Amino acid sequence: MKARIKATGTIVEVEGLFDVGTALVNGRYFKVSELDFLDNFETIDWEQRRYELAKSAMQGYCIALGINDDSETYDDIAIGSLRVADALIKKLKGK
């Protein structure tokens, strides 16, 4: 699990949590109150996020291009929208 050390802002990997309110980070013990845990990032449903991003991108394309009922155009926009979503997810994951 990842955490941010409050005093320095450094992101670290937590190696262990203990009942006495301490966490082991890089061989050093911290009080849990000295850390901000970043577990939300690891629980993101990336498939759901991909869907949401692609949906937003497709809406933007359709509005910007003033699309009519040409199904071939929709197919191209869907492919482009998925590429946009994949690129955004890649950046969000820091890759």
Rank of each mutant, 00 (worst) to 15 (best):
M1V: 15
M1Q: 07
M1W: 01
K2Q: 14
A3T: 12
R4H: 03
I5F: 02
I5L: 07
A7V: 09
T8K: 03
T8A: 03
G9T: 01
T10R: 15
T10D: 11
I11S: 07
I11K: 08
V12T: 10
V12A: 09
E13F: 02
E13I: 07
V14Y: 00
V14D: 04
E15Y: 00
L17H: 04
L17T: 11
F18V: 02
F18R: 11
F18A: 11
V20S: 08
V20Y: 06
G21I: 05
G21K: 06
T22R: 13
T22Q: 10
A23H: 10
A23K: 09
A23T: 11
L24D: 07
N26K: 08
N26Q: 07
G27W: 09
G27V: 03
R28N: 09
Y29P: 02
F30V: 06
F30M: 05
K31E: 12
V32P: 05
V32Q: 14
S33A: 14
S33I: 09
E34S: 12
L35Y: 04
D36M: 02
L38Q: 05
L38Y: 01
L38F: 00
D39K: 04
N40L: 06
F41Q: 11
E42P: 06
E42T: 11
W46N: 03
W46M: 08
E47W: 00
Q48T: 10
Q48M: 12
R49Q: 09
R49S: 01
Y51C: 00
Y51F: 11
Y51V: 06
Y51N: 04
E52M: 02
E52C: 01
E52D: 15
E52P: 03
A54L: 00
A54W: 00
A54C: 09
S56V: 01
S56F: 01
A57I: 06
Q59T: 15
Q59R: 15
Y61T: 05
A64W: 03
A64E: 15
A64H: 13
A64T: 12
A64K: 15
G66V: 05
G66P: 11
I67S: 14
I67F: 03
N68K: 15
N68F: 10
N68M: 06
D70C: 06
S71P: 15
T73I: 15
T73Y: 02
Y74D: 12
D75G: 14
D76P: 04
D76T: 10
I77F: 11
I77R: 02
A78Q: 07
A78C: 12
I79Y: 13
G80A: 15
G80K: 15
S81F: 01
V84G: 08
V84F: 13
V84A: 12
A87H: 12
I89D: 03
I89N: 08
I89T: 11
I89A: 06
L92D: 14
L92G: 06
K93F: 01
K93R: 13
G94I: 02
G94Q: 08
G94L: 01
K95H: 07
